[in-house]
Simulated assay, not measured.
Amino acid sequence: MSTKDISILALRGGALGVISADSKPEERFQNETLRPILKAQNDLFLAVFKNYVVKQKIEFHSMSPEKKMIVIDHAIQRDTKFRNILKGMIIGFFTLAEYETYIQNSSNLNKRMMNLLIERLKSQLQLLD
């Protein structure tokens, strides 16, 4: 393992969530890689989303919580450019071995990444105001 990979793993911290011998590879990747990255990058994700709302001229602050959640869903699921920026922020924290795992099943892992990120942003609505 390279020095860079060791540094990345140290920055992220350990696995989050339950990992057992019965865990599927995607679930293991989610808990060992994706969740720690999302946690480590949380403040940056919040800042990037706030900037997105401003750049798109969305009156986010005056919306109801339900409408805000819809905006989060639409921004991440329908705006390809924004989604790709978020994916890059996550992939940039992969080790080489994790990237090799990712490219073998990128479609399913991308869905997991975006769903986890959507839920993370929705759970922090008060920090987005």
Rank of each mutant, 00 (worst) to 15 (best):
V18R: 15
S123T: 11
S7R: 06
E100F: 15
S123Q: 14
I90P: 06
Q124H: 13
K111C: 13
K57R: 10
V54Q: 06
A75C: 07
V54S: 09
D22Y: 08
A47H: 11
N31M: 10
L117V: 08
L11I: 05
A75G: 07
I85K: 08
L34A: 10
G13D: 05
L16Y: 08
G17D: 02
S20W: 15
N108L: 06
Q30C: 14
S2T: 03
E32W: 04
M89P: 11
K4N: 01
E32Y: 05
L34S: 11
S20H: 04
F93R: 01
E98V: 08
N84T: 05
S7A: 12
A47M: 14
A40D: 04
E100S: 10
T95Y: 10
D129H: 15
F82W: 05
S62L: 03
S7G: 09
Q30D: 05
M1I: 07
F29W: 11
K50H: 11
L127K: 01
D5F: 09
R35W: 12
K87S: 08
F60L: 02
L46A: 10
L86D: 04
V18P: 09
I103A: 09
G13A: 10
Q30M: 14
D22G: 05
E98D: 14
L38S: 08
S106A: 14
L117Y: 04
L34D: 12
M69K: 11
M113R: 01
E100T: 03
A97L: 12
A40S: 14
N110A: 15
M1H: 06
F49E: 10
S20T: 15
Y52T: 07
R112E: 13
A15D: 00
I85F: 13
M69P: 01
Q126L: 15
S20R: 13
R12N: 01
L117G: 10
D73R: 04
L34W: 12
I19Y: 13
P65I: 09
N84A: 06
I58K: 00
E32I: 00
K87P: 00
A21F: 15
K122N: 02
N31K: 11
Q126S: 15
S64Y: 03
L16Q: 02
S2R: 02
A47F: 12
I58W: 06
I19R: 10
A15W: 11
V18K: 13
L16H: 03
I19E: 14
S23R: 00
I91T: 08
V54P: 00
I118K: 09
L116V: 10
F93D: 02
M1V: 14
A10D: 06
R83S: 02
I37L: 09
E27I: 12
L128I: 02
F45S: 01
P25H: 04
K4G: 04
N108Q: 08
S62P: 01
